[in-house]
Design a protein around this nucleic acid. Structure first.
Length: 276
DNA sequence: TAGAGCCTGCGG
DNA sequence: CCGCAGGCTCTA
């Protein structure tokens, strides 16, 4: 569920709410998370218990909760949330990690589908973490130039442009919603072979990615089902042009928005506004 | 570069 | 009951 704007919103709100607080207890559900792998319970406990939360930040769709010289790397998968809640004995189903803080509040990681990830790292080892090793550039960073992006597109084989946007090795943090929205804003058909995009169209696409991500951030993310940040739901759903709007009229040209399958995911697009 | 698989929950 | 869901990884 969560893409760059949702994860960034979660990071900012966590930072605001819990930075500087000490973790006095750690509770794990024991459930297996991503790929059916067990969470390193002893490692998580060691990394968090008794330490102070010094910083919370985002890289791609990963969150990093820094605790002094330790860190927890967290991915929300499809259905994960990180919430701040008053301490309670009874917690909602699918609560897989709780960091109990001084001050009668706790951070809860709740993930019904269990595609998420929680993994402890020594802060000094984080830069070499396998999860972060192959990630491409941050789309909102000025260090990513249109030229770089165009070269990345040109370096792909036969991949469609939509799939390339989802590939975290080329550009990090874009998911299904914002990929569809960016292609609409750029007027590009999702089925185009990425390698064949002209330099001006590549530049327009990068600009569109930035526009939709910034808008998503301003709206604190898109809540279609159950996404929520610590301070509540997002508002970006009302700004969506094509995503989840199959059969509805395009807001720009009035033609019906279509849905097609690409790589096992749904792609929403307007056949009038998005050209090959 | 598809497709399956990992999971639960919801809406039609 | 079936299909579908803001992700990622491994396989053919």
């Amino acid at each position: 569920m969560p893409e760059l704007p949702e994860v960034e919103t979660t990071a900012r709100e966590l930072e605001r709410r819990v930075r500087g607080r000490r973790v006095i207890d750690v509770v794990l559900s024991g459930a297996r998370l991503r790929l059916g792998r067990a969470v390193d319970a002893a490692g998580v406990d060691r990394a968090a218990r008794g330490r102070r939360i010094t910083r919370v930040w985002r890289r791609a769709k990963y969150l990093v909760i820094e605790l002094d010289d330790q860190a927890l790397l967290v991915h929300l998968g499809m259905s994960g949330r990180l919430l701040v809640h008053p301490v309670a004995l009874v917690r909602p189903p699918h609560t897989h990690l709780v960091l109990v803080l001084e001050g009668r509040e706790e951070i809860r990681f709740i993930d019904p589908r269990r595609f998420g990830l929680v993994r402890p790292y020594a802060l000094a080892e984080l830069a070499a973490a396998e999860e972060l090793a192959e990630l491409g550039p941050e789309p909102l960073s000025p260090e990513l130039t249109a030229e770089d992006f165009w070269q990345a597109l040109r370096g792909t084989q036969g991949a469609r442009v939509k799939s390339v946007l989802l590939d975290q090795r080329h550009i990090a943090g874009v998911g299904n919603i914002y990929a569809c929205e960016a292609l609409f804003v750029a007027g590009i058909h999702p089925g185009l072979v990425a390698r064949g995009l002209s330099r001006p169209r590549a530049e327009a696409l990068l600009e569109a990615v930035r526009v939709v991500l910034r808008r998503g951030l301003e709206n604190r993310g898109t809540t279609l089902r159950d996404y929520a940040a610590p301070d509540g739901q997002g508002a970006n759903q009302q700004a969506l042009e094509v995503f989840a709007r199959e059969g509805k009229p395009c807001k720009r040209c009035g033609r019906m928005v279509r849905r097609m399958a690409q790589g096992g995911r749904s792609t929403f697009y307007c056949p009038g506004c998005q050209r090959r």
